[in-house]
């Protein structure tokens, strides 16, 4: 069954979420939202999903500060962060490129990253345009650092990076990325060529598991509807609803 890139990414990310109890999804994150709903349907019906952009799926009743307080307490197991730039030490830049504050290309801002990245145990990084402008050796501005010195309170941090080309795992000991799988029809050479930072890899990396037809049915049915409540434009473009 043919599938779109977004569908591949949702299913790929979803497999990493099966054992999480509470997953939170912030601004501009329709793919992580889809992945969380998929994981709940397939593996863990009791999973709590907090979708900040949603009315139905945002269960905080004490304002958005409750999210950050709950996260700092360790009550959120997984979160997702993007990046205008992401570097080889998993530093993320959500501000823009060029020398701050004279940004050449300005992006919205750091959102909650400068707390969430530190305190949520499993943070998944995602960036759909994998190229040397986004995957850089060193980010122009650190909205939040990938790793911190031992004296800094940091129960959380990055566990994986998913792009439109591949999936990287995070090696916390070495503080660098390791290629986990290549998406279908993507070569190792292509990823090396498109990545501005050095990373670990095997000679013949596996291919990212493709969605099954039953997964695609699920995704295009109930899950597409759930996504549409918060991300109507994405749902229209991806699922035609």
């Amino acid at each position: 069954m043919a599938f779109k890139l977004e569908e591949l990414l949702i299913c790929c990310l979803s497999r990493k979420l099966h054992k999480k109890r509470h997953i939170a999804i912030g601004a501009a994150s329709p793919i992580p939202a889809g992945a969380a709903f998929m994981a709940r349907e397939e593996a863990n019906k009791g999973m709590h999903i907090t979708l900040l952009a949603s009315q139905k799926h945002n269960h905080f009743t004490d304002g958005s500060r409750e999210l950050f307080d709950a996260a700092a307490q360790g009550r959120i197991d997984a979160f997702f962060l993007g990046g205008v730039q992401i570097d080889g030490q998993a530093n993320i830049n959500l501000i823009g490129t060029g020398e701050y504050p004279n940004t050449q290309r300005r992006f919205p801002g750091s959102f909650g990253s400068a707390l969430m990245y530190y305190v949520v145990p499993s943070v998944f990084l995602f960036r759909l345009q994998h190229n040397r402008r986004s995957m850089v050796e060193a980010v122009d501005f650190i909205s939040a650092p990938g790793f911190s010195p031992p004296e800094v309170y940091r129960p959380g941090g990055p566990v994986a990076l998913i792009t439109d080309k591949c999936l990287f795992a995070v090696d916390s000991e070495k503080q660098r990325f390791r290629l986990e799988s290549l998406h279908p029809n993507v070569s190792l050479e292509e990823v090396i060529d498109l990545t501005g930072f050095a990373f670990d890899y095997e000679e013949n990396p596996p291919t990212t598991e493709t969605p099954t037809s039953s997964q695609l049915d699920l995704l295009r049915g109930t899950i597409a509807q759930e996504i549409a409540e918060s991300y109507p434009l994405f749902a229209k473009q991806t699922f035609g609803i």
């Binding site: 400068a114 707390l115 909205s143 939040a144 650092p145």
Partner: peptide
């Protein structure tokens, strides 16, 4: 007081 932030370039500015 707040957790996080230390090591972010936000703090420098």
């Amino acid at each position: 007081p707040l957790r996080g932030l230390i090591g972010s370039d936000l703090v420098k500015h």
